[in-house]
Write a protein that binds this DNA or RNA. Structure first.
Lengths: 344, 344
DNA sequence: ATCCTCCATGTAATCGATTCCACGAGGAGG
DNA sequence: CCTCCTCGTGGAATCGATTACATGGAGGAT
């Protein structure tokens, strides 16, 4: 592969001049510029990003460590992150932690070894050692979706509190009284916050929330299935199951169907995180939707601000309730255009 | 960030010795080794992968360019690719082309600039210029899922021919005669092959396949919806719609429901590419399943073989039919464990 | 005792870029 | 006509690693 030296030789100038042309430094004669550009053409030269990074100490690359690529929520997040980063002249390297702290650490380490300019993380747990080190070492970093309390890193996330309250109000309005939740890992902020919001909203409506109605999941479908089976085995099963993420909701749906029960007639179902597929399941699933794309873009902007020396800002966006049919009431316009997005 | 020089100073040895310890070269005294390791510890030193890559001319990184991250099929592929690559000591950088040749080119170029050791591609179209250049320039490369005819690059893919024949036989056996297909872009191999296989299978059963029953999609949900609407508007609509990928199948499902029709009573639906969600839709969707994980792993192995000087092998695995209820016949065990994976 | 080998180590070149500094030419100003 | 700037350019240092080559000391063989 042709190097800058070859280009210099071909153009009859020094490597310094070639470099100047490539970085359009003002002080280059028109003549030299055209000769260099021609040489670049004929040789099909492309600058070696590795060498450039070594010299300039910047890679123009962002690392993104997500908890689970198989979760459509994170996929959409990753897509918007890459899009915004590209618009700002950065590339993104994605690391998939599969909800495992050790894998998360592996990716953080690898990313740091590559000297990425900044790190976007949605921590899989309370904070793996490698991540904390990175934060302490001053690597530009931004948390997205989930975060770690007590660590001084900007956070870009959605606040589901209001939407969860709306959801509970909606369910209460439909006459449901026994509501259960499938929680995410307590070590994740999204895991604990959603339960917290749910608990508060229940209290506001004077509804009891017995421990038996709080199931411990891990954001994976299998756990949703297991917890739901537990609920159905109770002497007095809940009337509604609220899953703290979309994968657990699908596990729940599966468990319900396996018993031959119908949604919403026999038991209602709602989920946190709206995904396109919820429109297509039968019945369509009522969910709390995060502004995922905007979250990803805001996170990139915050991180790039931090990298380029501007003060980064934490951002909290609102989530909103999308009512569909899985809780009993038909959505306002059952067969309207396509994405049935009515806010309660 | 500490460099190898700092470690050398701390340990009281030369950088050469430090490097030897780090790459466990045999010729290092036990004493030196322990001193270096101690210095590495106290300084929290991590080798700079950028500098190392520049010198050794290898990055131990693979590029993976996929057509659409939002498609669960590619997500699963990406996951298995990363897993196998990690096991072999490589990292993976994913580029999402969003089915756009220009974006695909952008990612190929960026990846090449970073001097990745090899490239795994599922080409979004007949072959963008940058990709063909890369192939011609001798970059180690392997096509996965889709490929480009006439380019001398190993291909790892699934052959759906038999499964499609099984599908048509299944549909024929259920009494369906008017079968329509939503095809993918003709420029992609998977786009044309699936239609081809379908056409042949129809011929074998003596069934006609009028042009009106071949809709042109682009592997995105919206096109599935549009094409399906066209089918339903025909004077004699088909009895079955077969979508050439999972996203178009969901678009089709949506269009069907929007008309208030039922699956499979009013119209049957089948898809290429099985994904977990097909178990959860109502009715569960009959699909042709690819061994996605195995495909990803085999592709990585072939690419790494090529990179490390061993002869790479093209691989073709079989896809298989998974019968569910969307075509009329109840699946053999309607409420069996979970993943309803019965082969026809 | 001498010579040869081998082992541990250090010095320095190298990878491909960027960038500081020096230098020569040419133009402006005194 | 001389001085001083500015502009275009090239030489060379530099980033942080790896590695070929040189070196000196220890140990074995004769």
């Amino acid at each position: 592969m042709a190097s800058i030296k070859d280009v210099a030789a071909e153009a009859g100038v020094s490597v310094a001049t070639v470099s100047r042309v490539l970085n359009d430094h003002p002080s280059v004669s028109e003549d030299a510029r055209t000769r260099v550009l021609a040489a670049v053409q004929t040789l099909g030269y492309r600058p070696n990003a590795v060498a450039r990074s070594l010299r300039t100490d910047q890679t123009r690359t962002l690392g993104l460590v997500i908890s689970d690529v198989l979760n459509p929520y994170f996929t959409e997040l990753a897509r918007s992150v890459e899009e915004e980063a590209r618009a700002l002249g950065y590339s993104v390297i994605i690391g998939n932690a599969d909800e495992r702290p050790d894998l998360q650490d592996h990716h953080v380490r690898t990313l740091l070894d590559r000297r990425i300019d900044g790190l976007l993380v949605s921590p899989a747990d309370g904070g793996s050692p490698g991540m904390l080190d990175a934060a302490r070492a001053g690597t530009p970093m931004v948390f997205v979706d989930r975060w770690i309390p007590g660590v001084d890193v900007p956070v870009v996330r959605a606040d589901g509190r209001t939407a969860v309250r709306d959801l509970v109000a909606h369910l209460h309005g439909l006459g449901h009284r026994r509501l259960a939740i499938i929680a995410g890992p307590a070590a994740t902020t999204t895991g604990s916050e959603r339960v917290e919001a749910f608990r508060e909203a229940m209290a506001e409506h004077g509804l009891p929330l017995p421990d038996a109605y709080i199931g411990q999941g891990d954001f994976q479908a299998e756990s949703g299935r297991r917890v739901t089976e537990g609920f159905l085995d109770l002497p007095e099963p809940p009337e509604v199951v609220f899953a703290a993420d979309n994968l657990m909701a699908l596990g729940a749906l599966d468990a319900i169907r396996a018993r031959g029960l119908r949604v919403p007639e026999d038991i209602a179902l709602a989920a946190f995180d709206d995904i396109p597929w919820f429109v297509h399941t039968d019945p369509p699933i009522t969910a709390v939707a995060q502004p995922t794309g905007e979250l990803g873009r805001a996170a990139v902007r915050a991180l790039v601000d931090r990298i380029e020396g501007r003060p980064p800002q934490s951002v909290t966006l609102a989530a909103r309730l999308v009512v569909r049919r899985s809780c009993g009431e038909p959505a306002p316009t059952p067969h309207s255009p396509v994405t049935n997005r009515s806010t309660s």
